[in-house]
């Protein structure tokens, strides 16, 4: 009944035997204990469960863990270990802190990971591009404006580093 998968999560290798129906988000939360990834809606609509799978922002509540076999996954807990973080908080995390991009914090991990992918693809996004990129992540607290400012802050910081 169990299927074996091998994944790399936040730079660490894991080999697990799991039920085929186990969702990736539950694998991360229940099996690996990485509870920073949240479940918001179970239907791919809110984005609270967003993680990076092979560098792409993915909603982990509608992906089976077995589909992630052989993948590299980054969750919110692993962001400070990425090269962009340069030993501290990742600039997107820092931006959310600086610009009051969060209130209750529940959507924040997913929102941050969506923004990380955006800035990797597009280091100088316009406001409209930022709003479009995070449109798959719902936030009920902030009204999004401070999140947009947080992403703008991170973009600027990342660009200044590259110079």
């Amino acid at each position: 009944m169990g299927l074996e998968i091998q994944v790399q999560v936040n730079g660490k290798n894991y080999q697990s035997e799991i039920e085929p129906r186990l969702l990736l988000v539950h694998y991360l939360r229940e099996v690996l204990g990485l509870t920073g990834t949240h479940v918001g809606c179970e239907t791919s609509l809110c984005g609270a469960c967003t993680v990076l799978v092979d560098g792409r922002a993915v909603k982990s509540c509608t992906m089976l863990a077995v589909q992630a076999d052989g993948s590299e996954i980054t969750t919110i807990e692993g962001l400070t270990a990425t090269p962009e973080a340069a030993g501290g908080l990742h600039p997107v995390q820092e931006g959310f802190w600086e610009k009051h991009g969060l209130q209750c914090g529940y959507c924040t991990p997913g929102m941050i990971l969506s923004a990380v992918q955006l800035l990797r693809d597009n280091p100088s996004p316009t406001e409209a591009e930022i709003r479009h990129a995070i449109a798959g992540n719902l936030c009920r607290c902030t009204g999004y404006q401070h999140i947009v400012e947080a992403v703008e802050y991170a973009a600027k910081k990342l660009r200044s580093r590259k110079r």
Partner: peptide, 8 residues
């Protein structure tokens, strides 16, 4: 915020 933005 530090705990919230780090997922801890």
């Amino acid at each position: 915020d530090p705990r919230l933005v780090q997922g801890i």
